[in-house]
Computed example of a mutant assay.
Amino acid sequence: MTEIFAPARLGPLTLRNRVIKAATFEGRTPDALVTDELIAFHREVAAGGVGMTTVAYCAVAPGGRTDRKQIWMRPEAVAGLRKLTEAVHAEGAAICAQIGHAGPVANAASNRAPALAPSPMFSPLSMRAMRVPAESEIPELVAAHVRAALLAEQAGFDAVEIHFGHNYLVSSFLSPLLNRRGDGYGGSPANRARLAREIACAVRDAVGDRLAVTAKLNMEDGRRGGLTVPESLQVAAWLEADGALDALELTAGSSLLNPMLLFHGTAPRRSFAKVLPGPARWGFRLVGRAFLKEYPYQEAYLLERARQFRRELTMPLILLGGITNMDTMTRAMAEGFEFVAMGRALLREPDLLHRIRSDAATRSACVHCNECMPTIYTGTRCVFRPDRTPEPLPLRPPPR
């Protein structure tokens, strides 16, 4: 318990503890800009005791959003983002911007811009073909991530997390199932990893040691023919050798092909069928059972895969997936993980960390029903506290 709640280094940062609020799209940016509701959401989590909270999703381009209502990083967004970072800092926590491009997961119809994919694909979200960027266009994609990181710095963020997971753009380049290119960014594992490495190095070169730089990396896609653990281990080893990242947050699954591998627990098929827009709703009714598979929930459900990365790597690792109580956090520390990331448990109880610190026997009230997933369209929340609007008021500090 002492180790978990002691200050810890993350690159140039010192976090007040080793618990990070994972990126979970908040659904509180209707005009693609910061709102008071978004500030209240993160301030409540910060006041609840985490070492750092992560803002999701800060797209690097307007066409890189999964929905038009998400923030994309541009000068007009900086003033609002600065209010957000100041509010979180006032609660004693650090704040991270998750930056990335949704790639094939982007909604072209909503964004009014083509979705990008490494190879020709049809989008079930927008019911149209995706655009394949030429090799000559890749430097601009890298530059977009750099611009986003610099804007995050300007807005007062302490860290950026680059999205290399869930078959978003970079992850789709890593996947042999989705990347069938014949140029320098396709084919061999080294070529498929090239975009991830170039973005990580370019972001680090741009921000230096002024920000912590992490990445969320898929350990596997969870789909036949997709990225596997051995391939991802090689990618991670290359990223470690490049020296651009301060930590890796290990994840799994595909927003495009197998999202429940990330979440585990009950698949909220009926709820999604009610809220998905237009054509996506019709398609979901046909394939929802195959798309939203069910994986039994257990604590630290990604740990078995993550152990393989811990054995092979020396860089700091962040364990994600089923982190809800003191026992699991202690287990993660004992196995060599420097940080843990919590998501759904903090949607249910933003002050969970304070209560765990006060009483190590505290158990999360999250029941892993995943009904929070469909709420992204109306403001991400735990459905067991539907009328609770996060208020920007500090919670009582834990007893010393």
Rank of each mutant, 00 (worst) to 15 (best):
I4F: 06
I4W: 10
P7R: 12
P12C: 11
T14W: 01
L15A: 08
N17D: 06
A22N: 07
A23P: 05
G27E: 08
R28A: 14
H42T: 11
E44H: 06
A47E: 10
M52H: 10
G64D: 08
T66E: 14
V78T: 10
V78W: 08
R82H: 14
K83Q: 15
L84V: 13
A90W: 07
G92D: 01
A93R: 05
A97T: 02
Q98Y: 01
G100T: 03
P104F: 00
V105I: 07
A106T: 01
S110A: 15
A115F: 03
A115K: 07
A117Q: 05
S119C: 00
S119R: 00
M121H: 07
M121S: 04
S123R: 01
P124H: 09
S126G: 11
M127K: 12
R128K: 14
M130V: 03
P133S: 07
P133A: 08
E137W: 06
P139K: 06
V146P: 05
V146Y: 04
V146I: 08
R147M: 10
A148I: 06
L150C: 06
L150E: 11
A155F: 12
G156Y: 09
E161F: 07
S171H: 00
S172C: 02
S172K: 00
F173A: 06
F173K: 04
L174K: 00
P176C: 04
G182Q: 03
D183S: 10
A190L: 12
N191C: 10
R192E: 06
C201D: 12
V203G: 02
D205T: 05
L211G: 08
V213F: 06
T214M: 13
D221S: 00
P230T: 05
W238M: 13
A241D: 11
D246Y: 02
A247K: 13
L256S: 04
N258W: 00
L261H: 00
H264A: 11
P268C: 03
R269M: 04
S271A: 15
A273I: 02
V275G: 08
P277V: 09
P279N: 13
G283C: 02
G283R: 01
L286Y: 00
L292W: 00
Y297R: 03
A300E: 09
A300Y: 04
R305Y: 10
Q308P: 06
E312S: 14
T314N: 13
M315C: 14
L317T: 13
L317A: 12
G322S: 08
I323A: 08
N325E: 12
M329K: 11
M333Y: 13
V340C: 14
M342C: 05
R348K: 15
D351G: 11
L352A: 09
L353M: 12
L353R: 04
R355C: 11
S358A: 14
S358H: 03
T362P: 04
E371V: 12
C372T: 13
M373G: 01
P374V: 12
T375G: 07
T375A: 06
I376R: 08
T378R: 10
V383W: 00
R388I: 10
E391A: 12
P397G: 09
